[in-house]
Nucleic acid binder design. Structure first.
Lengths: 196, 196
DNA sequence: TTCTTAGCACCTAGGTGCCAAGAT
DNA sequence: ATCTTGGCACCTAGGTGCTAAGAA
């Protein structure tokens, strides 16, 4: 009833251990989380949101070209931040109509960041989780009887970093993220300027 | 309990009869509707949205430098489109915390446009209306007892056009809309290019 | 050493009025 | 005649990895 639309892309990164930049002001993920949902009640209303949990109990470092565990993880702040999909709340019909993309989700290491940012610890491995919850017949608050679906895709695990460690990852980002087009080897700066 | 934040700007346009471009793909308004709300119940939840009604029963044309009535108005499509503020639904506390800006509202003359666009008739005068409605304790649907506040600011009336008629209006748009900066007489193209 | 930060050039994405051509 | 449309150069706004300097 749920699948990862851009799984092939995620797997390319996962092969090399995915890294995601975190900054004070917040940085988008790339690849983005992009899913398809089926099997909801078209009439009912749902919130869809993302949070992150530690993927393992280790602190990691990158040494001699490899990620190696290094001591114990710090726990994430107890009141872990969530990213509510901007379409929330919405009908089951809406969520099932097209892919659900979390392209504006931002990662940060700044614990004072506004709500809507996800706060992570650098050099720790994280597992994104996608939650779907019915918003009951009583305004915004969750009915006790409503069930919460939680979905985990292990191929979306990543290590949060403040600067890329593995050049393979950097190259994959440059090759696939449209905003990094300027760094592609194949990018021809002259063709853009010569205009009739 | 409600006022127009950028009233001074609206008045500058209103003096010359405000015009708003409408296009097939949708065009933003400038000035934008920007209001401050007070007196809501901080705990309750509200939707805030905009619609437009005809400001008078006339068709208008611009002749010899003036807007003159010219025949009878066509009625707007009965199922007039609304623009729901993207923060909706939200708490009274949220709406009162800061100004409410409808900067992404788009006007169109395309009756097949997606929901979220406001469809208008060219060469007709329109009156924007701002509505605040409590979304009751029963999920999304309106309680019968909830009251709908409607606010009209006459200084925000405008004639929808597909091309500007009055050059005074064009000049005000250029002078005040940041996206039209390139058309300002005072804009110095050289200073941007000479960089150390 | 190892990790973090701020400024940068370079992009994507999309909002302006202008203008010439098209439609009615 | 009058109104509408589409392409354009020119902007705003903001997402990239890079680099050098700073922090721990």
């Amino acid at each position: 009833s749920v699948y990862l639309c851009n799984r092939d892309l995620w797997l390319k990164f996962h092969q090399h251990t995915t890294e995601m930049i975190i900054t004070k002001q917040g940085r988008r993920m790339f690849p983005t989380l992009q899913i398809s949902l089926q099997g909801l009640d078209p009439q009912a209303h749902y919130n869809v949101f993302v949070d992150m949990v530690l993927a393992d109990p280790h602190h990691w470092k990158f040494q001699t070209g490899k990620w190696v565990p290094c001591g114990q993880a710090e726990q994430l702040p107890a009141n872990g931040r969530i990213y509510m999909h901007p379409d929330s709340p919405n009908s089951g019909a809406h969520w099932m109509k097209q892919d659900i993309t979390f392209s504006k989700l931002k990662l940060t290491n700044n614990k004072n960041c506004d709500q809507g940012f996800i706060v992570l610890n650098s050099m720790h491995k994280h597992q994104p989780r996608i939650h779907v919850i019915e918003v009951g017949s009583c305004s915004g608050t969750t009915r006790e009887s409503s069930d919460l679906q939680t979905h985990c895709f292990p191929e979306t695990q990543f290590i949060a970093v403040t600067a890329y460690q593995n050049t393979d990852i950097t190259q994959l980002k440059i090759d696939h993220n449209p905003f990094a087009k300027g760094f592609r080897d194949s990018y021809d700066r002259t063709s853009e300027r010569a205009t009739p």
